[in-house]
Design a protein around this nucleic acid. Structure first.
Lengths: 126, 126
DNA sequence: TGGTTAATTAACCCTTATGTTAAATGCATG
DNA sequence: CATGCATTTAACATAAGGGTTAATTAACCA
């Protein structure tokens, strides 16, 4: 199993179901049953996915009554993003061909941060 | 196995050895033996890691003679970074709404003598 | 052709991941 | 206190991941 946090984060993000869950949480907190609804897999499976996300620091969970509210937490995500950008920049520094592409992409994102649709479009639920 | 590209990328990044390899490639192209050198694992293991990285589109490989030059390729990395940033922004957007609420509450708390960080999460959000 | 070097593939082992169903836990309430 | 609802844990099956050593492929060179 992944021992370091970065490995945990990437490992957590490697599953489309978990990415879908995160995207949904980006839209607002939700409990387990609500999160499970759109998926064809069992509740225990979702419960375990949530545990993985929590272990990666990507969500926090709050027991309220018999419900457990799940909330997005972006610190870990940012840590991972930073790592990736650092790598991109290493490469850019050597060849600086992708630099324009990257900057444009970043800028585009910053300009449209209220665009809250279709994060995860590859939908791999079999 | 991960079928979609994004899953493959994150899955590839979930392994510290593979991340180390990528970081090293950020410093310049290298062949398999060179890449394997710093690691305590066998050459076939490294070879397989490289295959995973290639499958995720994170490196390209070029057979030159009996050597295989491995090069970083950042497009996939950027795709993944974009996904993560998008998610972060979704959350930031939501959080900034919450922030107003928090500031108000903080102020209220400062007016009283309480030091508690007992902050309501927004519950009925949509 | 045969030898050397670089890298991969094959066959195997063990651990982890992901799913299932059934049982258990936690909590609210009649 | 029994019942119901939300969620987790247990026990299990199976697939995938990552490592090993041994054998194989590929390219170069004498």
């Amino acid at each position: 199993m992944a021992t370091d946090q970065l490995s945990k984060v990437f490992s957590a993000l490697a599953d489309p179901t978990r990415r879908d869950i995160l995207a949904r949480l980006g839209d607002g907190d939700a409990n387990v049953t609500e999160l499970a609804a759109p998926f064809p897999i069992s509740l225990p499976a979702i419960s375990r996915h949530l545990k993985v996300l929590e272990g990666a620091g990507l969500i926090t969970r709050d027991r309220q009554a018999q419900w457990r509210t799940n909330s997005l937490r972006t610190e870990s995500l940012e840590e991972a993003t930073t790592w990736m950008q650092h790598l991109s920049h290493l490469w850019d520094d050597r060849f600086s061909r992708l630099d324009v592409h990257l900057s444009a992409m970043k800028q585009a994102l910053e300009n449209t941060d209220s665009d809250k649709t279709d994060i995860d479009k590859e939908e791999d639920d079999d």
